[in-house]
């Protein structure tokens, strides 16, 4: 059988984008940021309820939240479809972190939590079909990059890094509670999970007045750097400043460790952080000319290839000869 000749799209995975890069990409997909964020809050509540019902570990929820946010970087946001996308994210997340659950059970619970109790099996079947289509789209928006959400998750990193840094149980426990708020943020799309865990531990040490991580500027030992840790640190501090009333920390504060915490606690942290900032952004011109961000994804392209390493692309360019490539 001879092959059909057609054009092919080759994409290099970029699992993390800076804050401004995310905004640039979402210019194509999110027309009303406020609606998107409001829906995200509702959807994350819904996902949390599903996870509680099925007694999934936190890593399942964290991975589903990553998928949900990643999906809407490259796919048009339509508020009516959010629950379907979220259920699909959870289905895929269950497979990714080995907490498998049958699609049927997820669908039924997804219906029930939305008070859709008078459903017929036909409705479940068509919902499932939609889930399966979205499942593949989610993987495509992740570039089939399984390096992310593959092994250790934020709460597990808190324990591991807490041990490595010889932080006491109270610090780690409070950090573990803060991490539950952190997984809702788009910082998941910006820096890796171990950098987020370090950012959380830094916040916790400061909230408790401990100096364990003070003046810690070199994170080479943990395969990250200060800018990534600070990016996470500020993302979380800003979240508490902007949305303290909705956070889970307020309702689950272990008062035997930290008697009280309020908005001012985080404003104080930010004030004391001085000139420290997060990741450095590239110039606007570079961002505007980055086709990965500015061009809407063409999922109608027949052959869409996904690679993880730039080397793969340069090798192929060499093999093909530059003239056959056109940008």
């Amino acid at each position: 059988m001879m092959a059909t000749k057609f054009e092919s799209q080759l994409s290099l995975s970029r699992p993390y984008l800076t804050r401004l890069e995310l905004q640039e990409a979402q210019n194509n997909t999110v027309s009303d940021v406020r609606t998107y964020l409001q829906r995200k809050n509702v959807i994350f509540g819904f996902l949390s309820e599903l996870c509680v019902h099925f007694q999934f570990p936190r890593k399942t929820l964290e991975t589903a939240m990553y998928y949900y946010q990643r999906y809407y970087i490259f796919n048009k946001f339509e508020s009516e479809l959010c629950h379907t996308v979220a259920t699909s994210c959870l289905l895929l997340s269950c497979k990714q972190v080995e907490t498998f659950k049958k699609a049927n059970e997820l669908c039924i619970m997804s219906f029930k939590l939305r008070n859709m109790n008078n459903y017929k099996q036909d409705a479940i079947e068509s919902f499932k079909k939609r889930l399966f289509q979205i499942e593949l789209s989610i993987l495509e928006t992740c570039g089939f990059d399984y390096r992310i959400n593959s092994r250790v998750h934020i709460d597990e990193y808190i324990v591991k890094l807490g041990k490595a840094l010889k932080l006491n149980h109270d610090i780690c426990y409070l950090a573990w509670i803060i991490a539950y708020d952190a997984i809702r943020l788009n910082i998941l799309l910006i820096v890796p999970q171990h950098a987020i865990a370090l950012g959380i531990l830094k916040i916790t040490c400061e909230l408790l007045g401990k100096n364990d991580m003070k003046n810690m500027n070199n994170f080479n030992e943990f395969k990250t750097e200060i800018d990534s840790v600070n990016e996470a640190y500020f993302a979380i501090v800003n979240y508490y400043i902007n949305a303290f009333d909705n956070c889970s920390l307020k309702d689950n504060l272990p008062t035997h460790i930290l008697p009280s915490v309020n908005l001012d606690s985080f404003i104080e942290l930010k004030k004391n952080a001085g000139n420290d900032r997060g990741l450095k952004e590239l110039g606007e011109q570079i961002r505007k000319s980055d086709k990965y961000l500015t061009t809407a994804r063409d999922f109608t392209q027949i052959e869409r290839r996904y690679v993880l390493l730039p080397q793969f692309i340069s090798d192929e360019k060499t093999a093909l000869g530059e003239k056959r490539f056109k940008l």
Partner: peptide, 14 residues
């Protein structure tokens, strides 16, 4: 990044 090239893989035999 995203490049356009001629189809890269052929399926010749099951």
């Amino acid at each position: 990044m995203s490049d356009k090239i001629v189809s890269e893989y052929t399926k010749e035999k099951k």
